[in-house]
């Protein structure tokens, strides 16, 4: 009805940061659960973590770090008014995100094949620690993967807007916010990776 002609980039950016804080708290809740159960079942968590593939984990970490760089670079590109490189860098980011999901698919697939799924008989035999470890593994990486999917959608819309000329060198806050979201997804993985794959 009104206030439509009003544009305040700083407000949008503060809003995005506030949203990022809610995401941090969301995962903080899960990290609390993880640390409590790790503290209570140190041996089982230690052994269960060895079931996870360090190779897949490291590969996905590298993929996310590179994608985080490309999306950061796309901001530099758009501010220089270089639409072509902006779209290229965003495209690479999205492809890397898809690669992450493909890896995740194979990794999950292998676990499911071995019966390491919540509620399975195998886990019941393995005991409480393993049940909790794999429950948390699927829940936390699953929630993270969900955020990756949301990120892909957001970045695709950003890419579309750059192509349509709605994001330009003097109106780039949407790209900036999309980038911030993507970095957040990266930061969460930076913590998930050692907690599940490395601390064995």
């Amino acid at each position: 009805m009104h206030a439509n002609g009003h544009r305040d980039d700083t407000a949008s950016k503060i809003g995005m940061w506030l949203f990022i804080f809610t995401e941090m708290l969301l995962f903080a809740g899960l990290f609390i659960v993880y640390s409590v159960y790790r503290y209570r079942n140190p041996v089982a968590f230690h052994l269960a973590a060895e079931e996870l593939s360090t190779f897949f984990g490291t590969l996905n970490t590298v993929i996310l770090l590179i994608s985080s760089m490309t999306v950061a670079m796309s901001l530099t590109a758009i501010r220089k008014g270089d639409n072509k490189h902006t779209m290229l860098l965003l495209g690479i980011t999205i492809l890397l995100a898809l690669a992450f999901l493909v890896n995740k698919y194979f990794e999950w697939g292998a676990k499911i094949e071995h019966g390491l799924v919540p509620g399975s008989e195998t886990l019941k035999e393995l005991g409480h620690g393993d049940t909790l470890f794999f429950g948390l593994y699927f829940f936390m990486t699953g929630l993270h993967a969900f955020h990756i999917i949301i990120g892909i959608i957001i970045l695709s819309v950003v890419l579309h807007f750059v192509r349509k000329g709605r994001i330009t060198s003097d109106n780039f806050v949407f790209l900036e916010n999309g980038g911030l979201y993507w970095h957040l997804v990266d930061v969460i993985w930076i913590f998930l990776f050692p907690l599940f794959y490395l601390i064995t």
Binding site: G5, R7, D9, T10, A11, T76, K80, F172
Partner: peptide, 13 residues
């Protein structure tokens, strides 16, 4: 009247 408060930060990394 279009009121714009664009990003003041001019640092391009």
């Amino acid at each position: 009247m279009k009121h714009i408060m664009a990003n003041k930060n001019n640092h391009i990394v």
